[in-house]
Nucleic acid binder design. Structure first.
Ligand SMILES: [Zn+2]
Ligand SMILES: [Zn+2]
Ligand SMILES: [Zn+2]
Ligand SMILES: [Zn+2]
Lengths: 151, 151
DNA sequence: ACCTCGGATGTTATATTGTTACATTGGCAA
DNA sequence: TTGCCAATGTAACAATATAACATCCGAGGT
């Protein structure tokens, strides 16, 4: 994400938190910014490294707490299969999104296929299962890497 | 899984491995059995503990190697969101299944919704993404726990 | 301005999950 | 038998995540 978009995203996040009566503190904003400027997912300990210099003496709880908050607010997502985190590309509204993860270049695309989410929910309901958080992470190769491979 | 079903599953796995020309060794069979007898997912280190007494001096690589083999052969699945493993309920054929995970009682149900898998693949293809391994883990509550909650 | 209370942060230690590296063993076939 | 390669043994370590407790800080009430 370029810096203009990042700033816009941060402004947006601030407004969102203000409306909700929660505090987007400096550290939380720093972690959110780090995730937004990156076009790839970042692990908690990588975030920790990148916080050095901006924050005095960050420890694991520092970053995990910020992540917990941002996850709760839907501003970032965790990629379970990678143990890594990404900024949400459309935090405006609550959503159940899916992730396409390129295991070649590492790029991650967040898509929001409402139909898919719905059919997933329906499939569960058929056996009495009440869906809370559907996790969908598709591992494969992105268009760009496929093109490169096929040259 | 009751012991009759477990034995059947193990026989089945042996036949499968023989056909494929791979070796279902004693340790691998032990891990597979442990996963099959359990109705809940088991973590690697929990498996390690349960191997003591059956295996002399198991260490982490012992269990991770067995798991790697079983995962490759499609005899078990890893639940990324739980860092735990389950025996496959229908290893006969290659498949992309989904998991319904009850965060109340811990029960996991493996379902195989081919339509869902297909629409997932199609959604990726629309943007040039080539799917290798779709991960679908739905967190929520199972029918039994819902009933209990609603009493 | 002062107090107070709860949320946010600092700090240290520890738990949990997974891997690397290298030595040793064991089945299988030339 | 010999040689080879997969499987296992063993020790150390890396990566991810949480627990526990002290301290700080800021919004709201007095
Ligand atoms: Zn999102
Ligand atoms: Zn790629
Ligand atoms: Zn399966
Ligand atoms: Zn349940």
């Amino acid at each position: 994400m370029n810096s203009t978009l990042v700033n816009r995203a941060l402004k947006h996040a601030e407004a969102l938190c203000r409306r909700r009566g929660v505090r987007l503190t400096e550290q939380r904003k720093i972690v959110l910014r780090l995730l937004c400027v990156s076009d790839k997912p970042i692990s908690a300990y990588e975030l920790l490294d990148r916080m050095r210099g901006v924050v005095k003496n960050p420890a694991p709880p520092t970053v995990y707490r910020a992540l917990d908050f941002l996850l709760e607010q839907g501003l970032v997502h965790k990629l379970e299969s990678l143990h890594a985190y990404v900024g949400c590309t459309h935090p405006d509204h609550p959503h159940a999104s899916q992730f396409l993860i390129c295991d070649d270049c590492g790029e991650v695309t967040e898509v929001e296929d409402a139909g898919l989410a719905k059919s997933l929910k329906t499939a569960g309901k058929a056996i009495g299962f009440r869906t809370k958080r559907p996790i969908v992470e598709v591992l494969g190769t992105c268009a760009q890497c496929n093109a490169k491979r096929d040259e």
